[in-house]
Every structure is written in structure tokens, then in C-alpha cells.
Amino acid sequence: MGKSYLRNILSAVSFLLMAASLYMVFVYVPTEATMGIVQRIFYLMVPVAWLSLLSFLIVFIGSILYLRKKQSRWDVLARSSAEIGIIFTTLTLITGSLWARPVWGVWWTWEPRLTATLVLWFIYLAYFLARSLAAEEHRGATFAAVVGILGFVDVPIIGLATTLWRGIHPGALIFQGGLAPSMLLTLMVSLAAFTALYSLLLLQRISMKNDEIEIKRLLGLTAERHNTGDR
């Protein structure tokens, strides 16, 4: 029962960090001078964008290990991370739009990072599609792993190509100019809170998936007993 212990600790940690980051975002941190109140989205957007990349890294690692070792637990890891990843990628696109509207006056701009995130979102979709269209489950897992590996390798190239395509965007100035210490601290707490939440969700999803596999196995077993009993 060590795992549920770990999950309890993670729940507590992410709850506390999340509460702290909410306080810091809305009360502690000063409003940004040029962009105004909308700049506070920044403390949500950066962590969810970070998680969409982190999830894909875990998908990549899980996929490689699955292809090497053919153990279903690596596929469970990759798949669970991809499920969480596509949610955070969607959130990145939504918060990106919410940011773009007041700052640039449009919901969507073909801004390099937003574009790269959109492509990442499509690759996540391809990951699930490759799995669902395979005839057998283990083939689907293999196909998904292949998409997971190619997709992750593609991410830096997509980033490079979209950046060169559109030139440097205003957001990059935030990092170049350096953040005020209070803003940096708020960002760090938010990042920590979301990373803890990610770990919690991942563990939760993996244990759910494992339970599903176990139930399927048991159902198969009872069906077999039943059949042989009839004869």
C-alpha cells in the first residue's frame, strides 16, 4: 500500500501548492504595468504549456521502453501521460487565445509558440488515433508508441521552424527582460503546483488503468471457467 500513501502525500502537496499559487497570482503579485490585469493568465499559461511538454517527454520515454521490453506497464505509463497531456495542451491553446484577445486584439494569431502547440495537439490526436484504429490491442500500443517517438522527436524541429517562420514574438521579451522577483517567485510556485498535480494525476490514471487490466483478466478467467463448466 506504499503507492496509495505516496498518492495521499502528493494530493496534500498539490492542494497546498495550488492554494498558495492562487493566493500569489491574485493577491500577492503586482499587476503588470503595460499589459494590465490580463498578464495574470501568464501564471496559468506557462505551467500548462510546460505540462504539455513534460507529458510528451513521459510519453516518449514510455514508448521507447514499451518497444524495447514489450511490457504493458510502459504502455500504460505512456498512454496515461498522453491522456493528461492532451488536456493540458488544449488548456494551453485556450489560455493562449484568452491572452491573445486583449493583447493583440484577435483570438488566434499564427504566433510561433501557439502554432507549435497546435501542431503538438494534432500529434497527440494522431497518437490516440493510431491506437484506436489497430485491430488488436498490442498492435495499437505499438503503433501509438511509434507515433509517440516520432512526435516527440519532431517537437524541437517544429519549434525551430515556426519561430523562423514568424520571427520572435513579444512574449519572448518576458524572458529576455527578466521578470520582477515577485513575479518569478509566483511563476515558480505555480509551476511546482502544476507539476505536483501532474504527478498525482499520472499515478491515479496508471492505477486506474492497471485495475482495468486486472478486471479484464478476471472477466476472461471467469468466462473460461464458465465455458469449461458447461461442457
Binding site: V119, I123, L125, A130, G151, I158, T162, W165
Partner: peptide, 15 residues
């Protein structure tokens, strides 16, 4: 299936 898997990956190439 091919376009859906293939197109997102080759985006940098097309750009």
C-alpha cells in the same frame, strides 16, 4: 489514416 498521422509530423518540412 495516413494524412492524419503524416501531416502533423511533416509540418516543419512544409513550412
Amino acid at each position: 489514416v495516413l494524412p492524419i498521422l503524416f501531416l502533423p509530423i511533416v509540418v516543419p518540412l512544409i513550412i
